[in-house]
Design a protein around this nucleic acid. Structure first.
Length: 261
DNA sequence: TCATTAACCGTCG
DNA sequence: CGACGGTTAATGA
C-alpha cells in the first residue's frame, strides 16, 4: 500500500511491458535502460480514470508524480465564476505538475481527463530516491523544468501583449508544435479539442474563439472535422498571428525537449 | 452537448 | 467614431 495516493480510483498492481514502454518514453527517465525503467515502474502504481474525472485539484496536497500513460488530460486553473485557464493539454508519456511533485508543495493546477485515461503514480519517496540512484534523471528534471518555464513565460507574454485573434493564432501554432502531424500539404493537430478548450487556452470566450476560427476557415487557412483541427496554410496563420514581428520562440512547445548536449 | 450566428453594448485608441 | 470582444439569446445538429 502506498502513502496516500489517489483515493478516487482503483489501483492496479499489474505492471506490464506496454506500460514500461510508455514510461520509457517519459523524458524524465531519458538515458536510463529499459531494466531501470522497469524497476521504477515496479515501485509505482497504475490508475485508470474515466473521462471527465479529476486526477488532482489545484491547491491540493501533492504526494507524488503522475505520469500520463494513455488518454488525454487538461491542466488548468479554475475561477470561481466558472471560467478556466488551460495551462497545458497533456499527451501520454509526460509528467504532470512536475514542480509540485519535486518540492512537495500543493498542486499548481487542476488536472482532468478528457477521455478515459491511465496514469502511473510515483510516490514522492520513490521520486527522491530516483535522483540519488540515477543522477541522470536530475539533469532531465532540470531540462523539463527549464522548458516549462520557457513555455509559461511565452504564454504569459502572449496573453498580455496580443489581442484575441493573435492569441488564438498563437494557440493553434503552439498546438501544431505540440501535436502536429505533417501531411502532404497541411498539419493536423492530433488532439481533439472543443471550441471551449481553445477559448480557455487562449483566454477568450467561446463565441470569440468560434468567431476567429470561423473566419480562418472561411479564409481557407484551417479546417476542422469533429474537433480535429487541420492547418492548411501555416504561412497564412503565421501571418495572421503576426509571427514575423514576434520575438517569442514558440518551438518550445514541441512535445519532447531536445536532448541535452 | 457542442457549434454557430447575430444583435447588442461597453471600452478604448 | 469605429474596431474589438464580451454578453445574451436563439437555433441547429
Amino acid at each position: 500500500m502506498q502513502a496516500r495516493g489517489p483515493a478516487r480510483d482503483i489501483p492496479e498492481p499489474v505492471v506490464n511491458d506496454a506500460l514500461v514502454e510508455v514510461l520509457f518514453c517519459c523524458p524524465l527517465v531519458r538515458g536510463l535502460s529499459r531494466e531501470e525503467v522497469g524497476e521504477i515502474a515496479a515501485a509505482s502504481t497504475v490508475h485508470t480514470f474515466p473521462a471527465q474525472a479529476e486526477v488532482f485539484d489545484e491547491g491540493e496536497r501533492c504526494n507524488g508524480l503522475w505520469v500520463l500513460t494513455s488518454g488525454r488530460i487538461r491542466l488548468y486553473h479554475a475561477a470561481a465564476d466558472g471560467r478556466q485557464q488551460v495551462v497545458r493539454f497533456q499527451a501520454p508519456s509526460n509528467p504532470l505538475d512536475l514542480g509540485a511533485a519535486l518540492d512537495g508543495r500543493p498542486h499548481t493546477a487542476s488536472a482532468t481527463t478528457l477521455e478515459p485515461s491511465t496514469l502511473v503514480f510515483l510516490p514522492r519517496s520513490v521520486l527522491s530516491t530516483l535522483g540519488r540512484k540515477y543522477p541522470l534523471t536530475l539533469r532531465n528534471v532540470v531540462d523539463l523544468l527549464c522548458l516549462e518555464v520557457r513555455q509559461r513565460d511565452i504564454a504569459t507574454a502572449i496573453a498580455s501583449l496580443k489581442d484575441a485573434k493573435g492569441r488564438i493564432g498563437c494557440v493553434l501554432l503552439q498546438l501544431a508544435h505540440q501535436f502536429g502531424v505533417r501531411q502532404k500539404k497541411s498539419v493536423i493537430i492530433d488532439y481533439r479539442l472543443t471550441r471551449q478548450d481553445i477559448a480557455d487556452r487562449a483566454g477568450v470566450t467561446i463565441e470569440t474563439s468560434i468567431r476567429v476560427i470561423s473566419d480562418l476557415q472561411r479564409q481557407g487557412v484551417i479546417r476542422t472535422q469533429n474537433q480535429i483541427l487541420e492547418i492548411l496554410d501555416i504561412d497564412s496563420l503565421s501571418a495572421a498571428s503576426r509571427c514575423e514581428e514576434c520575438q517569442f520562440d514558440c518551438s518550445v512547445f514541441q512535445e519532447f525537449p531536445p536532448a541535452a548536449q
